[in-house]
């Protein structure tokens, strides 16, 4: 073989100590990279975005059908239901947009691609969350945002300064709580490889549940959704706060201010679960 390689020599300057890894900045970078990769198939991207918007739009139609037959559910009318649907949709769809890919952990473990994430100086959670990051998931958010905006406009909400200030806090908290639920669901997959469906019953199942006024499910479900898997803070409690209504299931009123605290607790739980899972990671045979 000809040896053109000998012509060139490698630099012999002293080796630099690498800077400490920073994972936060890697998120937008990796997300952008994946979006560019997705943009290689623009038609597919466009169709998928519309598809996602249409599928959530369908849930919205279901809501109208339900309220077409029963004008009130647990004391909530259609506009109030739209508020709850919108809050739940914004929280879950944005959490899905940012963190939804983590549910594919089991698949990456089986394929061995999780190993390659572990040898990069970036948190594997960030790499997993941005894996195949695609703007198409934003399609889901569109109907939810529309419903939320409509409900906020038509409902007779007493816009005190406290409500105006709390609304973004509650929305951000609800997104954080949902992101944590996704992460907890993924962490289970370190221990049970096929736990994706179990996790989905809480993630997608939780979304379907919290799109309706929780009171219709009865006291025990509301209590579970408040204290065990705190999805009540995604739509139910913020809605009660905005509408200034007492909790029909009799839970104390201060709970509607607890969302930021719950978000913090959930973040701690999710971090702990993820770290524990990572320590128990077994990799694959090869």
């Amino acid at each position: 073989m000809a040896e053109p390689s000998t012509a060139r020599t490698l630099t012999t300057e002293p080796r630099r100590t690498p800077p400490a890894p920073r994972s936060v900045g890697a998120y937008p970078l990796l997300a952008w990279t994946w979006m560019r990769a997705m943009a290689q198939y623009p038609v597919s991207l466009l169709l998928l975005t519309f598809g996602q918007a249409a599928s959530t739009g369908l849930e919205l139609t279901a809501l109208f059908f339900v309220f077409g037959h029963a004008h009130q559910l647990a004391g909530f009318g259609i506009n109030e239901a739209l508020l709850i649907y919108g809050l739940a949709g914004v929280a879950f769809c944005l959490a899905d947009f940012f963190m939804g890919s983590v549910e594919r952990l089991g698949e990456h473990v089986r394929k061995g691609s999780f190993d390659t994430m572990l040898v990069r100086p970036v948190s594997p959670l960030v790499q997993l969350a941005t894996d195949e990051f695609s703007p198409r998931r934003l399609g889901k958010v569109v109907p939810a945002v529309a419903a939320l905006c409509y409900a906020l406009a038509v409902l007779d909400i007493d816009w005190t300064p406290a409500r105006i200030l709390m609304l973004p806090v509650l929305i951000v908290s609800s997104i954080v709580i949902c992101c944590c639920v996704w992460t907890l669901g993924a962490s289970i997959q370190f221990f049970i490889a096929d736990a994706r469906e179990v996790a989905n019953s809480v993630t997608y199942g939780g979304q379907a549940m919290t799109e309706y006024p929780l009171a219709i499910y009865g006291r025990s479900v509301v209590r579970t959704a408040t204290f065990v898997v705190p999805l009540a803070f995604a739509s139910w409690q913020p809605a009660l706060f905005l509408l200034d209504r007492p909790d029909p299931t009799g839970l104390p009123e201060w709970l509607r201010y607890a969302a930021p605290g719950v978000a913090l607790l959930m973040s701690l739980a999710a971090t702990l679960a993820w770290r524990t899972g990572l320590r128990h990671y077994r990799s694959t045979g090869s």
């Binding site: 690498p18 800077p19 400490a20 890894p21 994972s23 572990l118 040898v119 990069r120 100086p121 970036v122 948190s123």
Partner: peptide, 10 residues
């Protein structure tokens, strides 16, 4: 692991 990853190639 992450600090090590910055110093080795795999």
């Amino acid at each position: 692991r992450t600090r090590l990853a910055a110093r080795i190639g795999v």
